[in-house]
Design a binder for these strands. Structure first.
Length: 224
DNA sequence: GCATTAACACAGA
DNA sequence: TCTGTGTTAATGC
């Protein structure tokens, strides 16, 4: 079953066999925007998505329970696996931040371009490898870290991935909600709140609804 | 003792 | 006024 919330898949035109980067494949297709929580797809998707703005969360459903598998920032590709085999069928991709923009092309089109472009093949492999590593890291975190450490680990990773460096500090803006941080860290939103307040009391972070500043990323890392 | 669940207050739409 | 979020207290494992 393929169900897309926003239909109208358009194909890029022109010769892309010499494309320098995977993002080139998305240049001709229109940008689609999503509000927080809105679904990019559910069930199976045979398309590949480029995140242009915001964060996309990918999760899978197992009966009544949802497992957050991965999340993707601007510039990253979602659903790359469809280039190598059929999608699992129980996945949901949704906008995790306020305003998410993506572009998408069909997996079939993507595969055609890949066949004659070794550079893009290596880029896709690197992308899949990075995703594999994130999964392995998540397994490590769930089995070896407690809730507090997982929240801190999330902060460090998030800051390094999409935080802005301001002098010795790191600015996270906009701030994910405690609910979202809890989803990613695998804990309750109340626990996230408790940990953040402890870190604030220790002078390691400063935050409000609009932004979060990590005073000392190094000191934070040592707590994981 | 740690983490989740419950309960409540508050802010923004 | 309603929904989502932040905070604190109670409960369970």
């Amino acid at each position: 079953m393929t169900v897309s919330i926003k239909e109208s898949v358009s194909l890029p035109v022109g010769d892309l066999s010499n494309a320098e980067s995977c993002t080139d494949l998305f240049q001709e297709v229109p940008e689609l925007t999503y509000r927080r929580g809105e679904k990019l797809f559910f069930g199976s998707s045979f398309e590949v998505y480029l995140v242009v703005r915001g964060i996309v969360r990918l999760s899978s459903w197992h009966g009544e329970k949802e497992l957050l598998e991965d999340y993707f920032h601007a510039g990253e590709l979602v659903n790359c696996g469809v280039l190598l085999g059929p999608p699992p069928g129980n996945q949901v991709a949704a906008a995790m931040t306020h305003r998410v923009a993506i572009r998408r092309v069909s997996g079939a089109f993507f595969r055609r371009v890949l066949q004659s472009n070794g550079k893009l093949q290596r880029e896709v492999l690197a992308n899949l490898y990075a995703s594999l590593n994130r999964s392995r890291d998540r397994l490590y975190r769930y089995s070896l870290l407690n809730a507090r450490q997982r929240v801190i680990d999330f902060l460090v990773r998030y800051a390094e991935r999409s935080g802005r460096r301001v002098g010795y500090e790191h600015l996270i803006k906009p701030v994910p909600t405690h609910q979202e941080m809890g989803d990613i860290a695998g804990t309750a939103r109340q626990t996230v709140n408790t940990v953040l307040n402890e870190l604030r009391a220790e002078g390691l972070v400063h935050f409000n609804r609009r932004y979060l500043i990590i005073r000392d990323l190094g000191a934070l890392k040592e707590q994981v």
